[in-house]
């Protein structure tokens, strides 16, 4: 079972899923879903569409260089069947996958690090520039013109008493 990658978004295409287009020069284009197929038909460039892996790689959103990327590859070479080798490979897949996920999360955390400081800086600047918008609650009580004219219904205590008597 060979798991192919989508031409447009680079996601994995499992057997029985997606659609493939064979151009008249025998080039094969595989698509994971109709969304990718339609985008291909519209002649969009995956490098310019923000949700594709190609875009994210190119713009440093995802991890690009890592030793874990060296394991999964198309191997066009025959390998003699060896039960032990198969078992070791299957065991290694889980380990390598875990390492990769951890590294990716670390990369994401590192990428998002300056975001918090930026938000704080923006908030501090906003507070500094528009402090006049903020009034202390004591000032509102002293000057009722500052509050919005909202009418609040006051419930009558008499009715409650009648019900209790009944």
């Amino acid at each position: 079972m060979r798991l192919e990658k989508c031409w447009f978004c680079s996601s994995t295409v499992y057997p029985g899923h997606g659609i493939q287009f064979v151009r008249n020069d025998a080039k094969i284009f595989r698509f994971c879903r109709s969304k990718c197929h339609k985008n291909f038909k519209m002649k969009r460039n995956p490098r310019k569409v923000k949700w594709t892996k190609a875009y994210r790689r190119l713009h440093g959103k995802d991890m690009t260089q890592d030793s874990t990327f060296e394991f999964e590859r198309k191997r066009n070479r025959p390998e003699r069947y060896d039960r032990n080798l198969t078992e070791n490979t299957l065991a290694a897949i889980k380990k390598i996958d875990k390492v990769r996920v951890d590294r990716e999360s670390r990369h994401h955390a590192k990428r998002m690090k300056p975001k918090k400081a930026q938000l704080q800086r923006e908030a501090a600047r906003e507070l500094e520039q528009s402090i006049s918008m903020v009034k202390a609650p004591g000032a509102l009580q002293r000057d009722p013109s500052l509050t919005l004219p909202i009418k609040v219904k006051v419930s009558k205590p008499e009715k409650v008493d009648n019900r209790m008597e009944e």
Binding site: F29, P46, A54, T68, E72, K74, R75, R77
Partner: peptide, 20 residues
């Protein structure tokens, strides 16, 4: 160069094809 299947594979986290 325009986007190709090889670019898509590389972006998906695969290595270069191993032809032996």
């Amino acid at each position: 160069a325009p986007h190709t299947q090889l670019d898509a594979d590389l972006a998906a986290g695969m290595g270069k094809p191993d032809n032996g």
